[in-house]
Design a binder for these strands. Structure first.
Length: 302
DNA sequence: TTGTCAAGAAGAGCATCCTG
DNA sequence: CAGGATGCTCTTCTTGACAA
């Protein structure tokens, strides 16, 4: 026996059982009477048993038909619930996703992103790490990271980016080295030794690019691939560095560092949201990117 | 792998017949 | 006469073959 319990036919069958009439059931189901008639016939053929007695004045359900109706009703209800649950599941973002942020961005943004994302997508396992931009770039290319925040310039075609915000770099020196509100021309900044991260990091590449445009070199006697170490070395007078204001705001407020605005030209760089150009972005990744964009907009305005 | 086309199957409606 | 069954026809969907 070919047994295919077509839910469409079952619904038609239940209408006929309920109304005792094929014509009335057809009107309710928004089908023609012959269509309903065939539904019932096909169901009877599938079951191999008569489900109705045809009286000429309507349809009287048989014992087999009554049994089928009794069992089919809860089954159809369950199937409808299942379908709506599955449809709802498609709306829920699941899985895991990772984001890496350079330390110079500060801790407020990643903390905000974690808070907002966890609230919106509690079923996603979120990993946020702090790493220097070179390491973030490499992890994106390797595929061990979904999203990263990087700085201009990003030359690798394996990484796709979009701008989040712009920020200016300040020349940071030891306590009392610069008066509040002071400014330094870039050429003067480059005339002194600078403590910077290794060349593979975004900050170093950015500074060297600007120096090259001025026809100047960058004297880097000490490389430090850690923001904390960079700040500590500057505080001890080992040299100056270049950083966005957010990266040293606490140290500045506490009087442990001083800073001067850089001019001619101002060192303004774009902060970028970055992801792999070669890997598919998961739904969780897209959702996280949206949260980062949202927080970045608040950062720009606030 | 993807797009196109043709053939067949399935579903539905209209008109009409049959039955109690 | 009301209501179910059936024949015919049209439309839509599915499937398989074939080419790019």
């Amino acid at each position: 026996m070919h047994m295919s319990l077509d839910t469409h036919r079952l619904r038609s069958f239940l209408h006929v059982v309920e109304l005792g009439s094929l014509s009335a059931a057809a009107r309710r189901a928004h089908l023609s009477q012959p269509a309903l008639s065939r539904h019932v016939q096909q169901l009877e053929a599938d079951m191999g048993v008569a489900l109705f007695e045809r009286t000429g004045r309507g349809m009287r359900v048989t014992d087999a038909g009554a049994l089928l109706a009794e069992r089919a009703r809860p089954l159809l209800t369950q199937l409808e619930q299942l379908a709506s649950e599955v449809a709802a599941q498609a709306e829920v973002v699941t899985g895991s996703v990772s984001l890496a942020v350079p330390p110079s961005v500060g801790m407020a943004l990643p903390a905000d992103v974690i808070e907002v994302f966890r609230e919106a997508h509690p079923q996603v396992a979120l990993r946020v790490v702090v790493a220097l931009s070179g390491a973030i770039h490499d992890a994106l290319v390797r595929g061990s990271l979904d999203l990263g925040i990087l700085y201009q310039p990003v030359r690798s075609p394996a990484v796709r980016t979009e701008a989040l915000w712009r920020e200016s770099l300040w020349c940071v020196g030891g306590p009392g080295e610069f008066e509040a509100g002071s400014a330094l021309r870039l050429r003067a900044v480059l005339g002194e030794p600078l403590i910077l991260p290794a060349p593979r990091h975004g900050l170093r590449a950015f500074v060297e690019g600007h120096a090259a445009r001025l026809g100047a070199g960058v004297d880097v006697p000490v490389e430090a691939d850690s923001l904390q170490l960079l700040l500590e070395l500057v505080r001890r007078g080992a040299g100056r560095t270049l950083l966005p204001a957010r990266a040293f705001a606490d140290e500045l407020a506490a009087g442990r560092l001083s800073a001067a605005r850089v001019t001619h030209p101002a060192l303004e760089r774009k902060t970028l949201l970055a992801w792999s150009a070669e890997r598919h972005m998961s739904r969780a990744g897209r959702a996280l990117a949206e949260v980062v964009r949202g927080r970045a907009r608040r950062r720009k305005t606030g």
